[in-house]
Write a protein that binds this DNA or RNA. Sequence first.
DNA 1: ATCCTCAAGGATATTTAATATCCTTATTTA
DNA 2: TAAATAAGGATATTAAATATCCTTGAGGAT
Lengths: 161, 161
Amino acid sequence: MRLKSQVEWALHCCILLAGLPAGRYLATKTLAEFHGVPKEYLSKALQAVSQAGLVESTLGPSGGYRLARAPEAITFLDVVEAVEGKGPSFLCTEIRKNNPCRPAGYCDDKPCGIARVMWEADRAWRETLAGVRLSDLLGTLESSLPAQQRADTAAWIAARS
Amino acid sequence: MRLKSQVEWALHCCILLAGLPAGRYLATKTLAEFHGVPKEYLSKALQAVSQAGLVESTLGPSGGYRLARAPEAITFLDVVEAVEGKGPSFLCTEIRKNNPCRPAGYCDDKPCGIARVMWEADRAWRETLAGVRLSDLLGTLESSLPAQQRADTAAWIAARS
DNA sequence: ATCCTCAAGGATATTTAATATCCTTATTTA
DNA sequence: TAAATAAGGATATTAAATATCCTTGAGGAT
């Protein structure tokens, strides 16, 4: 069970967009180059994030993506679910119903106990992700870099937004 | 991101084994028939659970599997990790290092902030699973069945253990 | 002893999902 | 009008999940 690499890419892109001056766009090409990932495939991730309403895009030269809401109003869960989907990580196929002593048409009232535990863990996972906003990460990505490179990075992005 | 179906199978099998009288074995064939899953493939899941030390097996006629510890001493996390592995669901590929403004050999002190959040969510997921023991589920699986079928099921299993 | 049953595990399909690329279309800016 | 861009369809490639088959060696039953 592993999340798609697109989840990582989408999160990094959203954080980067969160650091832009209001209204500025960054093109897929720029985001791909900055993160060293294939442009065409990153585009699919950005489309998913766009369809979830987290970012908005504009066409033509100087086009690209920007956040559709304030960084305080977008959580990690929003981004993760945009790319990975909202479906639970545990799929209950109700194998308890294959019990040979069970009549065929018998209808259960309660969900499977095992599934309930797995879904509770899933809920805890999502709750943690929902508790972190893009704004919480602002600046922490470059914080490990020396001041000079942080400035270089800011200039590099500014020149392309 | 979805867990393998073998996780579901392994959990159901372990709960079933947890309900056996001490020392009794259940064969793969029986476990497969009871849950309506392919015997050969279920065998792979049981092997994984066995290698994790959660169950132990014996060969020959009347052979099969039984729990290696008391149901109170085995958690959902034990079973899930036995089948799914202990690796985190989020793989950080350090794409921040592809920042074109960053010197090639620069060595980071801190882990990526995004990865830390994702790993924290992973930890919350595992913590929930670690908080549930096999003994907590004992009986709840059949509890949705009428008394007659519960007795039939118990007899069906007893006849094969 | 001999035979049958069983778990372990290697080998090998088959199917599905993730990863990746290419191309067309419509839109916007210069 | 021309260039750049996002959107999205089509398709190829790779990896993982799912599944089956077969051999080996251990354990009971006869």
